[in-house]
Amino acid sequence: MVLDMWHLQDGKDEIKDEGDSVCFLPTPIPHSFHLAGASSSLTYTMPSRDLTHRPHFSLDVRTKSAEGLIFYIPTEQEKYHLALYVSKGRIRLSVGRRREIFNREKYNDGKWHTVTLSLEKRRFRLVIDGLRAQDGVLNPGESSSIQLSRAVYLGSPPAHTHADLKWKMLPVHGVVGCVHNFKLNGSAMAAPAVNRGVGLCFEGQMKSGAYFSGHGAHVIIDESFVVIKKFELVFELRPSKQTGLLLHVGNSDHHLTVFMKKGEVVAQVNNGGGGFSVCVQPKQTLCDGMFHRIAVIQQNNVVEMHVDTEGKYTIGPSASSPSHDRFPVYVGGVPDGRKLSFLPVTESYAGCLQNMVFNRDVVVFEKLSAVFGPVNMRECPANLRAPSPH
């Protein structure tokens, strides 16, 4: 999935649109990425020339992980690699064939640490907060054979690399934490080709939940769901924008879609006999920086919605046609809105979601594997700035 990541690199603009001025917003850290362990990674495709002549990387990292990959570059030869990772709290640089260097200091203290590393002919170097590890030295055969691939993985590499990582005794999953100012040869990394569950880092404290940054961010909470005439959805949201798709399952003939449009919450249903909907325009704005509880309940051709203490219901057509087709259940957005032209809103949701229960099953965001785009699956920013004055 290729995404425009400019907004994720320049955090000031990641959720800007005409309606944002009324919303309380978190303060992102520019040029930062939040890595969430196994469920998140960025894939870069680099020009070969940038990786062949004495490549030099630098980044700031903040983590409490005792184990996990920071980034990994395979090589054209199966047995070699370049990897930066955390093991027992120490940051290690592994090059070639299990040749490693590291400082004895532990860096998984939740504070920012600046890391630089380079590969220069037969030597490779690692410096953390100005403290230089003893240089690593490759034998002549290794130094002439290492040809880094064009793929650079930040966080958890894709599944097809896991077998190699295991026999190389490297972590399979990425760290949980933040990376800031990721650079190659002194220049900021270009936009990644693929984003899988990597959102922004934010200033201040964090709380439980998942933060969706918009721009195509979405997750799948059920891969194979039959749209039936009995349904229940409960969740809490704290939006950063007034418009966005919250949940969708189905096609034009059988579906349930829940979305926000200019602060109004709408549930749209089609049981095969025609569409009907219920909407609630809250008396108090949902953009006040507080969490609000949403409940949607469908029983046959009746659908009701509750937004905090306000509730409404709608009676739809009694005629219906059952469907046995199975559909993925999308939360936060859909892969390509152009293919779902019947949706009233295809814009991705931006903001926090927490305490989601889908047909009595609790959704544990951080355990989901189908994660797409800039989503922080583990936490929501707690510190918010007031809406901009008009």
Rank of each mutant, 00 (worst) to 15 (best):
S41F: 14
S41I: 07
S41L: 12
T45I: 13
T45G: 08
T45K: 12
M46Q: 06
M46R: 04
M46F: 04
M46G: 04
M46V: 05
P47R: 06
S48N: 13
R49C: 12
D50G: 07
D50K: 13
D50T: 11
T52S: 15
H53A: 13
H53R: 12
R54Y: 15
F57S: 08
F57D: 08
L59K: 05
L59Q: 06
D60C: 11
V61G: 01
R62P: 02
R62G: 02
T63M: 01
T63Y: 01
K64Y: 11
S65Y: 00
E67C: 06
E67M: 11
E67S: 11
G68K: 00
G68A: 02
G68H: 00
G68V: 00
G68C: 00
L69G: 02
I70D: 01
F71C: 03
Y72L: 02
Y72P: 02
Y72C: 03
Y72A: 01
I73H: 07
I73G: 07
I73R: 12
T75E: 12
T75A: 12
E76H: 14
E76R: 15
E76S: 11
E76C: 09
E78P: 08
K79N: 10
K79M: 10
K79W: 09
Y80V: 09
Y80W: 12
Y80I: 08
L82V: 12
L82M: 13
L82Q: 10
A83Q: 02
A83C: 09
L84C: 09
Y85A: 00
Y85F: 09
V86S: 04
V86A: 05
V86F: 04
S87K: 12
K88W: 05
K88H: 12
K88N: 11
K88C: 03
K88P: 01
K88T: 07
G89Y: 04
G89S: 06
R90N: 08
I91L: 01
I91F: 00
I91K: 00
